[in-house]
Structures are given as C-alpha cells and as structure tokens.
Amino acid sequence: MTALVLKDVCKSFGAVDVLRNIDLTVEDGEFVVFVGPSGCGKSTLLRVIAGLEDATSGDVEIAGARVNAVPPAKRGIAMVFQSYALYPHLTVKENMALALKQEGTPRDVIAARVAEATRMLELGPYLDRRPADLSGGQRQRVAIGRAVVRQPKLFLFDEPLSNLDASLRMATRIEIAALHRSLSAAMIYVTHDQTEAMTLADKIVVLRDGRVEQIGSPMELYNNPANRFVAGFLGAPAMNFLDAATLGGPGGATLGIRPEHLRVTDAGRIKGTVAHVENLGGDTNIIVETGAGERVTVRVFGQYPCTVGRSAALDFDDADAFLFDAAGARLVAEPA
C-alpha cells in the first residue's frame, strides 16, 4: 500500500513560491529522506504533509485518502522535531502517554505501548524524569518515543539530529535505522546533512529552490546524478568541478570528478600545487590548486605523506567523470 502521495503540490507564502509542483510517492515501510540546502523548502514540504501548513494547490494523500482539509490530529502521522518540543512540565512517561490519553486509548494499551517504546529506545531509567534532567540524546529519544507510541501510518522527522554532537548524531542515526527496521513503518526524514541522507534512506529526494531535482536510491543519485547540483550536493568531500575544455572536453562544459576517483600520479592531466592536506587518519584529503586557480580535492585511502607547496599531478579514469552543460544538466547519456 502507498503511505503517501503528493500530486503537484505547491506552497506559496504571499508572492514567494516555496514549493513548486512537487510529485512524490512513498510506499509503506519506505524510508525517504528530503535533502537540500537551507531554504530549499524541505521542512515546509514536511509541514505540508503533517498539516501544519496548507498546500496552496495540489493533493496530499496519506494511506489512500486525500487529507488536504484534514487537521494534523486526524492524519495518522507523528512528527519528531529538531527542537524536540518535549513538554517540560511532564515526565518522560507522561510526555509519551499524553497524546494517547487524550485520544481515549485504554490505560492498559497506553501502558503496553509506552513499555514497548521504552524498551526499544532504552528509556527505562528515565521514565520519571523531566526533560530538563535529560541530555540532548536522551531528549531526542523521548521525542522519538512520543511518536512511536502513536503507531502512526507515517513518521515525519524534521532534522532530528541537528542539535546533537557528532558522536551522538551517529549513534542516534543507527538507532533510527534500527527503529525503522523494527517498525517497518514509512518514514520521511528531513536533513541538510547528506551523510544522514545517504546512510538512512531507501529513497532520497533532493530539493532546491522548492523543486525536486532528483529522486532515487542513494547509490543511484551518487553514481548517476541528474545534474551538477545533485552531483555536488551528495558526497563528502564534494565532487570537483573543472573546466572541461582544459581537459580535452567540449567547450563551455564542466567536468565533474569525485575526490576518491582522482589519483596522484607522476604525469596526470591536472597539474597544480598542494595547497592543504587534511590527515583524517583513515583517509587523507589533499587540496591541490591548479594553474587556473581551481581547487581540486583528492581523497586518498589511508595515510599519505604530503607536504604543502609541493607540485602534484592528478589523473582519473574517463569513465568516472561526469559532464555538465553551462546550465548544470548532465551531458552524457545515462548508462543503460
């Protein structure tokens, strides 16, 4: 069954078009990530799905029913916010149980669901604490628990990990992936962090300026980006873009090559000087400045001794390169 269908959804705030003709289908059990830079409309799209904003035009269907005029309370969704939005005057247990109580859910059902969410999210020791007594990661787990107990048709996550530090972000990311596997519910997750998008998603929706740039699995988007924006947005370090004409390509085109597809050789096509070296332990990022003033990042696996200021030559396999026209569209036909 289809969990969500968006048909030609548009949203404007006054004269400003924030979402333009969004079409999307999310199947049951699918993990879909909306990704894009700040201001691209990804959170607004999530809010339109939640019912916190009305679509200016188009249809929003959840579990087969059109819900444009249905309030959030009746959409069968549960949302987790970046700010957690926990109720500070209630304990962890009360935070999780409140929405169920007001729906008139029987006490034993509430107790069972809270117990299940508590077990799943390892919140046992904190049930009688209030949000002020919890760490950021614990608060986010409570916010997730509050959504889980409702057993919604659709989970919505609005940048849930943005307020956490790097290590906690990774741990919570793994927890969310595990949660998705155990619940098998459809989840929509908004982030500007492409690592989260790549690691969590079954399907990524890349947004820019309120439009969908491309939809596909993480590897589809990574290996076969539709345009320069998608190619540059996914991947860390980001794809290098060079003037294709200087490398034997067509004039006016841009050549894109990922840092891991470049290699340092004695006689490469890209020549320059090492401007900076990032030793990450497991990898080394070497930033080379070419004669044309372009900065090219090379990702070398393992530790690579390299000094700033030395000259370097880089090369790549043509099969790994992407060509984009002046407007950013892919020039080379997609592989069959």
Binding site: A50, G51, P72, A78, L86, Y87, A99, L156
Partner: peptide, 23 residues
C-alpha cells in the same frame, strides 16, 4: 510557550482545547 510546543502537540494528534489546557 514556544511555537514548536503547539506544533508538536498538533502533529501528535492533540486537539486545540487540549493543547491549551495540557500544554
């Protein structure tokens, strides 16, 4: 009371009167 508190309650299925009374 932060706007997020209202929205969280709405997105978790609570109706306006209860949001006001309980949150």
């Amino acid at each position: 009371v932060a706007q997020g508190q209202f929205e969280a309650a709405r997105a978790l299925g609570m109706r306006p009167f209860l949001i006001f009374r309980k949150i």
